[in-house]
Design a protein around this nucleic acid. Structure first.
Lengths: 219, 219, 219, 219
DNA sequence: CGATAAACGAGACGGTACGTCACGTCTTGCC
DNA sequence: GGCAAGACGTGACGTACCGTCTCGTTTATCG
């Protein structure tokens, strides 16, 4: 999520978080250690107070990192929150392939809706999307790290269904993704309603079979 | 947008904004006059600096109203911005009925996309949606004043088409609205892309005719 | 304390404070009734929150009088508080005359010190004196209603002692009052100390017998 | 006057107020520099508008310091005004020792009265004493920085006179100070009158020779 | 005795100050 | 040299009070 990672090393468990009980550390510390502590702290703060609780001031006070350091690694509190968030919920949504594309889509959408509406993870996700509309750094990070990868996953799965003849050869796959996930986002972000199973079923059925008049010869 | 309007009278052009050149008014002024001046000012500020430029401090300084008054009428800067925004762009999107539901939907979606992506109105709209994810007052106002009315408009138009046999009798109208508009929102808010005419066409075609394999007997 | 009392009638118990349990009174009410309720309320507020708790806003809310009315009768919150205060502690300090001027002065000073240092009356008195240094209306009222009358009382008692030969014929009575009471005020207001009985004894003895070297011929 | 001075260094003329003509400084500046500019500004404000003109908002605007900084160094506007005031009028009243204690006391009292009654310094002093009755921080600062030191000065001078046999060996020195200065404060603060030379003479004479009946054997 | 004017309550309004918080910049002192 | 610590200017927040002013209601007074 961060713009640059000179060391190239994501913090691992092996990199020392050792001197935890010591006196308030000063002087130079390994970047990885600092980053790890910060992200851990931010994840906790996100969980408790939501996105608005993540300020550089509070993070600095709670994590032991200095504001100078935070500014060096993250362009805005939103970016920092986003990285901490993704590091946590990452990989939570794997795309099944049972062979039944409609069922797989429905179950995937249901899992997605559940993630977006349960507390506190869902609230944080919604707040991140919200903040991204104002914070360009956050928006770029969000698209790059979340939206595009997840869209690609979905398209990959759809293309496989297409290859199997479960979708029309000229089906606009990208538009289908927009339609299916976008409908859920619409409910959640714009209407403040929680999508139910009924909606998911309707979405999938319409996408595959259309909502036009029955018996009509589809041109 | 505001929670209560004791006088019950939305400010109109007729209500005196007369004593403009006078001394800096003290004491009680008609609520309608104050509200009108504030909303006018906020609209200008939205146009120039976007949503983040709308702070109670700046609005008070620029409109001649006091912060006390602003807090009395609006629970948050976002709510104020929303009301000013809707008072301006309201009714900009009228739903045509040429008899051809697919064409009407497409043209309506195209107009909507244009509104959401042109500057500065589109940016403000996106920022409002974003802020609504954090500000409960703004969210409530947004849903009440914008999302629900526009969805009702769309459903009304779709129901008419349904009555004419242009849609299946059991078509899930609400879900269709989510699918069509939600897809555009998905592109704009989540992916930071501008929906093109191609997308709109794909959306409408899929909704009416499905993207399943051709020649399939639609169950 | 108030600048004018057109009706000339201080509120008495007979003037109706009747409709107490009724609906929240509006429209014209007898001035005396309004004034009485206000002063009663302010006395309570002074007792609980001190002088700073007496604001026109709070008094209006608590007394049922409107701010308009308060501004009509009192020039500042301080003046209002002063009037309410004096209406309460008035006449609390009567000057005894046992024939022993030194003993009478000492007991009078002790009573005065006790009044000024016990809570909450003493705190309010100190705050009133403090506020009078900034609020001209309050200062004028304070001097007129409190300082001068009490000084006159003291001078009257001293002159009687002088007539009896208990004080030098050319004793500067006004200066003596300044010395005796002023010394206590000095301790309380300037040094934030509580005058003790020892101080009072020293003051009286010095005033009557001097602190110069013993055996000296008083020129 | 401030509670703590971490750097331990009172601002001096040598500490750089150099970069005055530069751009509006951001980031950290030396505390001494900031404090010096603030106190200078406040002294000017006190001179022109009195104590009520010293608000944190105005000081911040006029001095270039931020409200945050002001709150960090001073607990209330009154404390700030007090420090600025004392930094200015400090040392204005030196205690002479001509050998004639009565004459020295009289001249010292006259100088004190003059300081307390001339404009604008006297008005500010009275307002400070007034505000100290409500503001505990200001009261503590006032007592610590002004009242006690000045009383100690006076007692020192009186003790010297006592050692020379110009005062009774058992003369209550502290009470004498209360009597002499307190009498002047009484006139000024409580009675709103300006002490004249006559008063000062009467005070000193009474303190040394008593106001009791002449020829009486002083018990 | 009914109309009218005065006094009141309620409270909105423009100002101003309060005290707090976060941002982004900058300096100092450890390590 | 990099980092913590944290002070600094900026500016917004939400609240409180002041003093002015408008409105509708009630009462006392007078035609």
């Amino acid at each position: 999520m961060s713009t640059s990672d000179p060391a190239g090393n994501r913090p691992t468990a092996t990199t020392s978080v050792t001197a935890r009980g010591g006196r308030p550390r000063r002087g130079r510390r390994p970047a990885a250690e600092v980053r790890a502590e910060v992200l851990e702290t931010v994840a906790r703060m996100l969980f408790h107070g939501g996105l608005t609780a993540v300020t550089f001031d509070k993070v600095a006070a709670a994590s032991g990192a200095s504001k100078t350091t935070l500014y060096k690694w993250w362009p805005s509190p939103g970016s920092l929150a986003a990285e901490a968030y993704f590091a946590g919920v990452w990989n939570e949504l794997g795309f099944d392939d049972t062979g039944d594309i409609e069922a797989d889509l429905a179950s995937q959408l249901r899992a997605f809706v559940h993630l977006m509406t349960r507390e506190p993870a869902g609230r944080v996700a919604r707040e991140l999307i919200g903040a991204a509309q104002t914070d360009p750094d956050l928006r770029a990070a969000f698209v790059r790290e979340y939206s595009l990868p997840r869209r690609d996953e979905a398209i990959t799965r759809l293309r496989r269904a297409q290859d199997r003849g479960q979708l029309a050869a000229d089906a606009p796959l990208t538009a289908l993704v927009d339609q299916l996930w976008g409908a859920c986002y619409h409910r959640i972000l714009l209407l403040n309603e929680e999508p139910d199973d009924r909606l998911v079923d309707d979405l999938v059925r319409t996408v595959f079979h259309g909502a036009g008049p029955r018996g009509t010869a589809d041109a």
